[in-house]
Amino acid sequence: MREYQAFGMHIESEVALALPLAPRSDAHSLGHGKSSGDAYPEWRVSIGLGSVKSDPTLMQTLGRIRYGESGDDIQVEVPWAGRYRVRGDSRIDVEPKPAADEQIVGLYITGLVLSFLLRRHSFLTLHGSAVTGPHGAFAFLGDRGSGKSTTAAALTHAGYDILCDDVIPVATGPVVFPGIPFPMLLPDAYERLIGDTALASHLFNGIDKYKVELAASNTPSPLCSIFILEPRDVPHLEVLPLRGGAKIAALFPHICSSPGIDDTRELFARSMERLGPIPVFRVWRPIAGDSLSEFTGKIVRMDKGECA
């Protein structure tokens, strides 16, 4: 049995996961502010191997993955990895496909199944990356290749800590919980921020990115601002504040939701409560040229001046 800590959960798992290991009970948080245990009740989750019967009634699909509500549970069936059943908000049963790679079996737990669990536990989840600094958390949203992970990784050079990459869990407050704190960087970003990719084959995900471990926080952090990154054919970096309906319309595509499982009214209410009061900026990054340092410098200045 392995023990992990992420998304505000203390996870005991029979399946290996790419998540931070739970600190020993006598260890102290090194992040900014309070440790999660100080302010939030412990949420214990167990992941065990067992039989999960196929459910032919699952209606929702993600490519060849089928998922949906199955009685009171949520079931996910990945033909090449296994079947997963979410029971309540604290138990996941896993029946791996015979001969399936354990890493692949775990990948669908961290990348998909835990998201269902988070939303059952009243979290709002965003697709993006987040860092935390002295005054709170900054979230970076955007399409694939827009620079979310790269921006988060670059901010560690300015003293910020990674909170999460890929899935950003937002609780009431709004507060960003730590998630998977390993940014995935494209080769050019890796070479610029970390080092020689020739020495990093062990970090390569087999497709196109390198998984990096940088300074990270295991502490929930109040959400300070959100940046929606959009590479554009513009001559200069532009950071434009969004308000009202334009703000919500820009955020909406980056809010994780699963048809057939998430209740639209509940999701809307959670989104308005947690994201409505937060400053949101649309960031036009020039496709040509390099605006990373300028952008991170601007964030640091905003943090000092406006978010304190």
Binding site: R243, G244, G245, K247, I248, F268, A269, M272, G276
Partner: peptide, 9 residues
């Protein structure tokens, strides 16, 4: 219906 930044959404 909700209100965000003095606007209705």
């Amino acid at each position: 219906l909700s209100r965000v930044d003095d606007e209705a959404v």
